[in-house]
């Protein structure tokens, strides 16, 4: 349904809880990620997504709902989203959702967005470009497909104009300014200003029982078990490891000038200059 100019804007921001990359360690023997004991935090790109949405809310009549799929402890990223200024948080948590690949994840998120849209108007979905652990950058585009909405990726700035969205996409070496009808999905890789810090009073408020946080399960979004989690996944991660990399030393020979030329050639070959 097309949005009327100047009316209320319903925004959902997708936020994922990821292991803190500043604390992450690898098992040197197996090369797998050691998740044990690593604090879980909000995906950095999603902080940018929240800031982008909250900036819109600063300037017009809008509400921002943060949505996450994950285990119960993922509620922490929603509490933090409330502390940053989101109006509401919804956690999708159900045993059936476990082990989802990007297909099943985006299906589940898409179902929840449809339900949100039935509850209040939903005009815009903001995702991070990429999750720092899964790293596929697929969820935003897949969610857009699921909803049948247009998508704008790699966004660094957004403005809502009448019934349209104006977005600035950052591409290698250039910025593209695009117009897109609403409703739409965007994925962001930057925000015009550094993401705001959570307010401590809102943070404590978010931890109280009256906080606007909800937990939805499979039944709440009418998601059949066969479409979610491991069962609904088309792909499977068999193993995660860091590839063995060796160092190769090459000696430059000849006069200083020849060595300098050889070095420049090497750097050019590796596209470093």
């Amino acid at each position: 349904m097309a949005r009327e100019a100047g009316s209320f804007l319903g925004v959902a921001v997708l936020v994922k809880q990821v292991p803190d990359s500043a604390e992450i360690k690898m098992d040197p023997q197996t090369g797998t990620l050691l998740r044990e004991g690593v604090p879980a935090v909000m995906n950095p790109d999603d902080r940018l997504g929240l800031e982008t949405a909250l900036l819109l809310k600063d300037g017009l009549d809008a509400s921002v709902t943060a949505l996450s799929m994950g285990p119960p402890q993922a509620l922490d990223v929603l509490s933090e989203a409330l502390a940053m200024g989101a109006d509401r948080g919804v956690l999708l948590s159900d045993r059936n959702f476990a082990g989802a690949d990007t297909w099943a994840t985006s299906y589940t998120l898409g179902r929840a967005l449809e339900r949100l849209g039935q509850q209040e108007s939903l005009d815009l979905v903001v995702c991070g470009r990429q999750a720092s652990d899964g790293d596929t950058a697929q969820i935003g585009p897949q969610v857009a497909e699921h909803l049948g909405w247009p998508q704008v990726t790699y966004v660094e700035r957004l403005a809502v104009e009448e019934c349209e969205l104006r977005a600035w996409r950052r591409l290698p070496g250039l910025v593209q300014e695009v117009l897109c009808p609403l409703p739409a999905v965007v994925t962001v890789l930057a925000s015009p200003v550094a993401p705001r810090w959570p307010l401590l009073d809102r943070l404590l408020m978010a931890c109280r029982s009256e906080a606007p946080l909800e937990v939805w399960d499979a039944a709440d979004i009418a998601a059949p078990a066969a479409s979610t989690g491991l069962k609904g996944s088309l792909t499977r991660v068999v193993r995660t490891f860091s590839p063995k990399s060796g160092r190769v030393t090459s000696w430059l020979e000849g006069s200083a000038g020849e060595q300098a030329q050889a070095l420049i050639n090497e750097l050019r070959n590796h596209k470093l200059i």
């Binding site: 119960p72 509620l75 922490d76 978010a206 931890c207």
Partner: peptide, 21 residues
């Protein structure tokens, strides 16, 4: 009881990130 975050853990996390960044 509704599922809620632990304010002590969350505050520590936010302040630790503030210090780091």
């Amino acid at each position: 009881m509704a599922l809620r975050s632990d304010p002590e853990k969350l505050l520590r996390q936010v302040m630790a990130r503030f210090v780091r960044e």
